[in-house]
Amino acid sequence: MFCTPVSFRLHFRCILLALAFWFVCAPMTWAADATLLNVSYDPTRELYKDINSAFATAWKTKTGENLAVRMSHGGSGKQARSVIDGLEADVVTLALAYDIDAIVDKSGFIAPDWQSRLPADSAPYTSTIVFLVRKGNPKAIHDWADLARPGIQVITPNPKTSGGARWNFLAAWAWAEDQFNGDDAKVRSYMRALFANVPVLDTGARGATTTFVKRGLGDVLLSWENEAFLAIEQLGPDSFEIVLPSLSILAQPPVSIVDANVDRHGTRKRAEAYLNFLYSPTGQRLAAKHYYRPISPEYADPTDLKRFPHLRRINMTERFGDWRSVQKTYFSDGGVFDQIFLSR
């Protein structure tokens, strides 16, 4: 391709113009309506998609204001870290109380009494930990004991970053304590055998689910009950089935407004209304629809409720104490999880 100096210059100008056009054409058009930012953990994506549009409609009828709720999802611990670092969350809806405590302790953005501000320890829905296995349960996994068998691959996310993974860990620990009559050495050796079977630690529950269902890695996924149901719904009932262990844990994913942020944004009223909406009949019905166990089952659709199997769920604080000390003992650097994982 030969170019005369004139056409050469012309080409150059054309390219420059095209580039300029390309850059100028990226307009800034953020929606100007009132917004709320809900910073949440991994598996709540589908739940809050429904909640947000229902709340927007209810808020519009009540106040006439167009409200858009924006979402950010990720591993619960990582999300808490982002709020501490300044992510402008109006409300946080996380996987466990410690992650909100961490925001209180490390940033002071949330009032220390947050957990008593809303009913049921500020947890509008509960869940539990179940096993998701491949169809027909080819490795015959029925209870926690089976997870420590040689040759079984267990998928769970990293308890350092994921809330679900911390519930997984504590449920396994509670079962082992009962099984071995509280013999600490035996509990630890069981946990070591379990984590020796874990080939990969994802940062969040959704990452772990994708690893198990889409990448086909592992024989059993330790999963939130809601996440397990959703995986079956989304990816086919002919590929997976749920196994209920003899004992699991009552998981309470709590919610709170972020006081410092709502006061600066002037969104306290909206944020409070939003969280109260989670306890309303509509909120409870939607929670049950998305496989979260509602705290007011009377508002839920009975057919949705029928899907929840009966399962013995131990209460975490009664068994292990409050989250701050549990976090310190089990999941801090050099804590029990580190000891087990490094010596597995």
Partner: peptide, 24 residues
């Protein structure tokens, strides 16, 4: 980024989000 949908998600981040939502 903070991963706020519709606000601070760039295309590569949006791809990850969609993939994680089974929206292959």
């Amino acid at each position: 980024s903070g991963h706020i949908r519709g606000m601070t998600n760039t295309m590569p981040l949006h791809v990850e989000i969609l993939y994680n939502e089974y929206n292959f």
